[in-house]
């Protein structure tokens, strides 16, 4: 039954992907001078995004970003699969010596500010340098600091999986909403607002928040798995 559901949903997905791929028209030159001028003018005039890199990565080339996120997901899954046998004796990590009191209290102070900085970077991805991947990595370094400092600090694996799946579902469902209402995957469906506002760029902000959560959860999971490996 489960396999049937998976096969049917994969079939539906494959059908629509075929549709998209045949609609592209390979070998046809659409623009005389490449697409760079189109990207530059579209991200300024249509999307009203000041960070052109973000508008290309998330909107014009959003499908590639979905692939990158999938690669990261596959890497973390594969690592979990390889190290799964050794994760049975979860407990105190094998550290040479415990961290000192100064580091412990300092990490407690630093951790919220690192998470805040990461959230700032991925929320403001369409306004300033940075974005979902960078912000998620910053949040994961915060968790790394806590895991290195406190020997019995643990991250709930179920909660990580929950965040990761929710973020992935959000990304794909935004893309599907764009496909069904505007005709192409990850098409912008929200109002674009004014340039340099926080609420501008349509779906870019929401997709980057999803990517940030996903990357943070995946990297934290990888770090946690590797730190818990014992020989």
């Amino acid at each position: 039954m489960k396999i049937a559901i998976i096969l049917i949903s994969l079939g539906i997905l494959g059908f629509y992907l075929m549709d998209i791929f045949f609609g592209i028209g390979f070998g046809v030159q659409h623009f005389s001078n490449g697409v760079k001028d189109l990207y530059l003018s579209n991200s300024k005039d249509i999307l009203k995004v000041s960070n052109v890199v973000t508008s290309i990565v998330v909107n014009f080339r959003g499908f590639d970003t979905l692939g990158e996120v999938t690669v990261l997901f596959l890497a973390s899954t594969a690592l979990g699969g390889i190290l799964y046998k050794k994760r049975h004796h979860v407990g105190e990590r094998s550290v040479l010596f415990p961290a000192s009191r100064i580091v412990m209290s300092g990490a407690k102070l630093l951790f919220p500010s690192i998470v805040l900085l990461g959230a700032y970077v991925f929320i403001h991805g369409h306004l300033s340098p940075g974005g979902g991947f960078q912000g998620g990595t910053i949040i994961a370094t915060g968790f790394l600091l806590m895991l290195l400092t406190y020997r019995n600090y643990s991250v709930s694996h179920n909660r990580l999986v929950y965040f990761e799946s929710l973020a992935g579902i959000l990304f794909i469902s935004i893309g599907l909403v764009g496909y069904f209402s505007k005709g192409s995957f990850l098409e912008n469906v929200l109002p674009v607002g004014n340039m340099n506002d926080l609420f501008s760029g349509g779906v870019i902000g929401i997709i980057y928040i999803a990517v940030g959560f996903k990357v943070a959860a995946e990297l934290t999971g990888i770090i946690y798995t590797v730190l818990h490996e014992k020989d």
Binding site: L96, F97, A99, S100, I102, V103, G106, A107, L109, L110, S113
Partner: peptide, 20 residues
């Protein structure tokens, strides 16, 4: 503020690790 409290902590951790 961030430099004032992150830099001494990290240098303390480095020095302590070297001592250990």
């Amino acid at each position: 503020l961030f430099i004032a409290y992150s830099n001494p902590i990290s240098s303390h951790a480095l020095a302590r690790a070297m001592h250990k």
